[in-house]
């Protein structure tokens, strides 16, 4: 028996039943695996279920059926407090926009996972500054998000997503709010982290230029995974 994959999603289905509205099936029996060290993308047009899938993989939402396993251990369906602890330990997140806590400076944002983990102040500050260096943001460590450009904010978000050395960074359309040049340089940062620091990335996008950077692309269509 081979070693369990880093992430394994099995027959994930998700149906939203909004109040007073018809049921929406966002995902239908999606199964996929991710291995450590991947730099992979989930592609698909708007409404195809990319965010839904990433949220379920990231334990932010529960699947209607199916399960998510990390290294063979089931994490879907954990109670909220345990799911939070799991994310704090094992996952990093980057979102499309408004990612950072506006009242905290760049370095305070970057170190926040370590604050939640209870890492002593001096150590977490040093680690946050280090990762800010990796993403080229150490000179703006003391700025608040409103004084940073969109691309700079996303770099800080990248720093925050890796500061606690997670198993995987899940990024839902991290470049959607950026122009193509800024998007490309953010992808440069992510790619170098993947190569030099062995950070596993799974991100979503519908932009072909962005998708072309991924080493593996999974296509979603109407909630179904297209055959490779």
């Amino acid at each position: 028996m081979s070693k369990a994959p880093l992430i394994s999603a099995r027959h994930i289905s998700k149906t939203y039943t909004a109040k007073g509205a018809a049921k929406v099936t966002a995902l239908t029996s999606v199964s996929l695996d991710f291995a450590a060290g991947e730099f992979s993308a989930i592609a698909g047009p708007s409404g195809s279920g990319k965010s839904t899938l990433l949220n379920i993989i990231g334990t932010l939402d529960a699947p209607t059926s199916g399960e998510v396993l990390y290294e063979g251990r089931k994490v879907s369906g954990l109670p909220p407090e345990e799911a939070a602890d799991f994310r704090l330990r094992a996952l990093g997140f980057i979102f499309q926009a408004y990612n950072l806590i506006p009242v905290l400076t760049a370095v305070e944002n970057a170190e926040y996972p370590l604050v939640l983990q209870g890492v002593p102040a001096a150590e977490r500050r040093a680690r946050a500054l280090e990762v800010l260096g990796w993403v080229g943001m150490e000179s703006m460590a003391d700025r608040r998000p409103n004084l940073l450009s969109g691309g700079q904010q996303q770099r800080v978000a990248v720093a925050r997503s890796i500061v606690h050395r997670p198993m995987v960074v899940l990024a839902d359309e991290p470049t959607a709010n950026l122009d193509s040049k800024t998007a490309a340089s953010l992808l440069d940062v992510m790619e170098s982290l993947n190569k030099e620091r062995a950070v596993t990335f799974v991100f979503s996008s519908h932009d072909p230029a962005v998708l072309s950077r991924a080493r593996r692309v999974l296509h979603l269509h109407d909630g179904k995974l297209a055959p490779a």
């Binding site: 939070a84 330990r89 990093g92 990612n99 950072l100 996972p113």
Partner: peptide, 16 residues
């Protein structure tokens, strides 16, 4: 609300 979502995503417990 969104900010609380971010905090919870990065591992803050609901009770926190």
């Amino acid at each position: 609300v969104r900010e609380f979502g971010v905090l919870m995503a990065i591992g803050a417990r609901p009770r926190w």
